[in-house]
Amino acid sequence: MALLAQNLGLRGSVLPLPGGYLTSWAKGLLLPRGGEVVLYTGHMYQMLPVIKAMEDRAKALPPEKRDQLAAILRLVNPLVNVSGFSRFLASPDWKERSNRILRNIVELLRRAGVECGYLYEAEKYAGALAYDLGLDGPFERHARRVARRLRRYGVKELITVDPHTTQIFREVYPQVVPGFDLRVRSYVEVLAERGLEAALPWEEEFVFHDSCVYARYLGLIEEPRRLLTQAGAQVAEPDFSREVTHCCGGPVESLFPEKAEEVARRRMEQLAGLGRRVVCACPICLLNLSEVRDPRQEVFDLSEVLVAALGQKEK
């Protein structure tokens, strides 16, 4: 935890990765730099390949070794960005996939007639993990820095890609940053408002997994369903769905990976009972549920299904 606080204070992210790594997904998309409306990735998708690599390694170490390693890293970290090295461990499959998801989202927005800018290297992690862990001091200082930067770039509206970044900007920033009044919407809301023109009947049902933050914090429940239906998909609902959705375990991944896995397994069982294809709308759910799936099951990001429907329509 001290490592997270150090990183946030010194390098502006809980998991500081080089700018080139974080922005490589946007290559060739010609997104304008800045602007009044920007796509704010919040780095969550980009972190997935690294989180996956760190989880795998943490689980291979006994807890007492993990504590020793954390103590050493904490001493070295102020001098050398130890988290930066983690990019060399990143899972190449996940890197490719998370970059593709972000590109998908831009494509979906463009198809819906929404053009937005991007802050590239100037975009910072929004701070959700630090806030959740009660690192109030480091989080508040960080949030003020991020807000100052957004003001400097003249940003008026954020289009976010994950529930955690959406919630932190929409509900928490206004409480800790005086005068923070940016309009904050998830791409799911933006697309649902505009509608998707692609009705392709899929052979199989998709089981939808609600993110806790979208469903219970932000009340964003109908929008992803509407989009899936417009994409021609039949949506299957597990018993624990909508306002009573069951967590994927992700939020405690960084501190208690074994417990997180247990929760993910329980959730995956509930979903798998209904169908082979699971869809979620949060990067953390995507990673956690994918990790525990049976090889016969597939876990998709919402954007992957929507983009596939658009692609099929053109054929």
Binding site: C212, P251, V252, F256, K259, V263
Partner: peptide
């Protein structure tokens, strides 16, 4: 305290 998922179930 730190094991809570903050999932709001």
């Amino acid at each position: 305290v730190f094991s809570c998922l903050l999932c709001r179930m």
